[in-house]
């Protein structure tokens, strides 16, 4: 084969021959690179990996990965990928889409793939705008957003993406951002290891239609004070001196100064809780692009995976009734013989 000279540990091995066509400076480039680097470290085969996408800038992703890929229909990628994952549990199936793709037109498919816990790695590139259609507000755009379709400002209330995933009962929920390759790789790796539906929100900069929306959070200069790193089993603290933290009051998460509330009041992060309320509360900690925002793994619980359930039922049926016999099926109802005389 052609691969003999290629080294699977090199990024090029995972890079297709197609020219990448995102706008120069788009955050998608960083995400693609992180993914390709991750694959150089994973013990997986190209032929067993499939990227399925919907429509939008992010959805071009599969064209650039040297794996199997399906660039499908706006919003439908989670549904199409579900069929593939159920039919072929031997495959590693990734789903890529943007906020319009997965939360607007495809919202229904997303929540049901998460609810069923299909073994899909779902990456939502959230840039809070419709890029491919040139700049309309999206279901994650903030209230008041002025775009071509909302010249007087958007009056829609945006989704909390993490809240949607937690509400749908997603068994793995994480957030990362396009400026930190290392963080992305670690989050993607954890998603890949997770058995079931893994939902990863990536804060992605669209430098053409929504430039800099996350600057107040993810720019290097502000990260310490604005990014809250979630670590399972540890208190949720942040700030240069770990002087701030997250407390839960009346079921609501809020940021507090440790000096005011005392260290014991700071919540210990537990991503393994079966009840998704902590993930939900953390997802609602910030609802703008200006306050401290949690990153990392919100939730990772082991619950029954869907495709395995489907295939177990097939095995059980096979064991109970033996392999299907067509002639027996046709005579399984009442039958009668007619004899020629």
């Amino acid at each position: 084969m052609t691969d003999v000279t290629l080294d699977p540990t090199k990024r090029g091995y995972w890079t297709s021959d197609q020219d990448v066509r995102w706008c120069p400076g788009c955050g998608d480039y960083g995400i693609l690179a992180a993914m390709q680097f991750l694959f150089t470290e994973l013990d997986v085969k190209r032929e067993n990996t499939v990227f399925v996408s919907g429509i939008g800038c992010a959805a071009r992703f599969p064209y650039y990965m040297e794996t199997y890929g399906m660039h499908t229909i706006h919003g439908r990628a989670p549904a199409i990928a579900t069929g593939l994952a159920v039919a072929r549990p031997d495959l590693d199936v990734w789903v890529v889409g943007g906020d319009g793709d997965m939360l607007s037109i495809g919202g229904n498919h997303l929540i049901h793939a998460l609810r069923r816990n299909v073994n899909l790695k779902i990456l939502l590139f959230n840039n809070q705008i419709y890029g491919l259609t040139k700049g309309q507000y999206s279901p994650t755009s903030e209230v008041g957003k002025v775009t071509k379709s909302t010249p007087a400002g958007s009056i829609d209330h945006p989704f909390s993406t993490i809240g949607v995933a937690a509400g749908a009962g997603a068994s793995f929920i994480a957030r990362t951002h396009d400026l930190d390759r290392k963080h992305m790789i670690e989050v993607f790796r954890a998603a890949h290891q997770h058995k079931g539906a893994a939902f990863v929100e990536i804060y992605q900069n669209c430098n053409v239609f929504n430039d800099g929306i996350y600057d107040a959070i993810v720019k290097r200069s502000v990260r310490d004070e604005m990014m809250i790193d979630l670590v399972h089993g540890e208190r949720i603290l942040f700030g240069a001196q770990k002087q701030r933290g997250v407390v839960i009051e009346n079921g609501e998460a809020r940021v507090a100064d440790v000096a005011d509330v005392g260290l014991d009041a700071i919540v210990v992060h537990d991503s393994g809780r079966l009840n998704p309320s902590l993930a939900f509360a953390l997802g609602h900690l910030s609802n703008d692009n200006m306050s401290p925002t949690p990153f990392g793994i919100f939730r990772s619980v082991a619950i029954a995976e869907y495709a395995e359930g489907v295939n177990d039922q097939l095995l059980a049926a096979n064991e109970a009734s033996g392999p299907g016999d067509l002639a027996a099926l046709l005579t399984s109802g009442a039958t009668w013989e007619v004899t020629g005389r």
Binding site: V50, A79, G83, L84, A87, L91
Partner: peptide, 20 residues
């Protein structure tokens, strides 16, 4: 596969077809 809607039902089938 009893899907969440008619669209997903067709989509899942097409995904399975891609898988052979």
């Amino acid at each position: 596969f009893q899907a969440e809607d008619e669209i997903a039902a067709a989509g899942a089938a097409l995904g399975a077809a891609f898988g052979g």
